[in-house]
Design a protein around this nucleic acid. Structure first.
Lengths: 209, 209
DNA sequence: TAGATTGTTAATCGATTAACAATC
DNA sequence: TAGATTGTTAATCGATTAACAATC
């Protein structure tokens, strides 16, 4: 399958949530492209194109089988191939994420939480004990960690990312407010929280005028 | 000015961070469209088009004055028109946001933190005391709150959003994992954290194959 | 069956890129 | 000045939408 675009991934996730939510228990439950389109405020043709792109076939006069849509999206996005993740930075955000149980349905399992501050070592957060950053390489190797969730201050982000990459991590979820430079083959998803703020600010401004 | 598109806002924020970071103290500091483009991995023409769209003029042979770029983006996005925000839901995520000081440069000031649980009332989080949800309408009115940051469980999100809208809030930053229905004129930005997860998962899958 | 819905081709639309004159 | 850079027009590219035959 050819590389899926960022915007397509975004739309697929949107469809996914909608279909999962309304999926009746019955295996035969169906959903039409029009129903999906209405919720997502798009054209039904685009929904059909997107679903065709990941190999879901619909049934004329009926629509799409909900469980087929759900499974095709899970396959396309790799949710059924489990990955282990470690959080680096046990500040409030790191702790919030460590305590959050919502990643499991997407195949991501948080197995460790690190912080550089010695006084935090050993503290328990949710199901995790805070580990010293010095043990990062060992834990990544032992537990086969492929994702690092970076919740450290911007000033430390690049250095910590370098260590994670050296340890063999292949993807970084970057919550720090700074860009990262990483070698080819390592994927970075930069969570730009300020973009959300910008949207709010902009729309309030529009309202006013 | 015509309505700016979501993707343009996103690109503008990207430029903004880059220019702010490299902005030398000198007021005369300049930056070329090529320099911005290289960082953002785009075509320089698009950068020029985007900047032209918000009214920044460059100087041939020189580039763009950094402070003009920064100010034009701030103006376009409304960062210099301050807004007051309240957080609803003093769980870990709500507390993490309440303790975060990074919103001020974008004109957003967090003035209150609410939770429905009586046993949380009165606790101090950062600079904020947790208030009972019953006082929402009063505080929104008194403090002129225009933004609500929603960090409650999905099951409570719609009901809380309704109360916020009734109280006169005009924008909602939704961190709950469920869609919201709101009247026209109220803007919702849904922070879909799982999209980030999906991207990571998808790219790890690509790597593997 | 008739009507509803898909899948696909063609048409449209908009966004990005290329080309290049204008400028300093 | 010569070379670098912008701003803008035209060309390209890709994504979305419209149209409609095929299907159940």
């Amino acid at each position: 399958m050819k590389q899926l675009k960022h915007v397509l991934l975004e739309r697929l996730m949107h469809y996914y949530h909608f279909v999962v939510e309304r999926q009746d228990a019955a295996d035969g439950a169906t959903v039409t492209s029009t129903q999906i389109a209405k919720l997502v405020h798009m054209d039904a043709t685009l929904v059909r194109k997107d679903l065709a792109a990941i190999g879901v076939r619909g049934y004329p006069h009926v629509g799409f089988r909900s469980h087929e849509v759900v499974q095709a999206i899970r396959d396309a996005l790799g949710f059924d191939e489990p990955h282990r993740a470690a959080i680096i930075g046990a500040g409030r955000l790191g702790q919030a994420i460590a305590s959050y149980h919502g990643f499991t349905p997407y195949g991501v399992d948080i197995v460790a939480l690190f912080d550089i501050a010695p006084q935090k070592t050993g503290l328990i957060v949710g199901r995790h004990e805070i580990l010293p950053l010095a043990s990062l390489a060992r834990v990544v190797a032992e537990q086969n960690v492929s994702i690092v969730i970076l919740t450290v201050p911007a000033s430390a982000a690049q250095e910590v990312a370098d260590r994670a990459v050296a340890a063999g991590v292949r993807a970084i979820w970057n919550f720090a407010t700074t860009g990262l430079v990483v070698p080819d083959g390592v994927f970075v998803h930069h969570e730009r929280i300020s973009v959300g703020l910008a949207e709010l600010s902009y729309h309030l401004k529009q309202d006013a005028s």
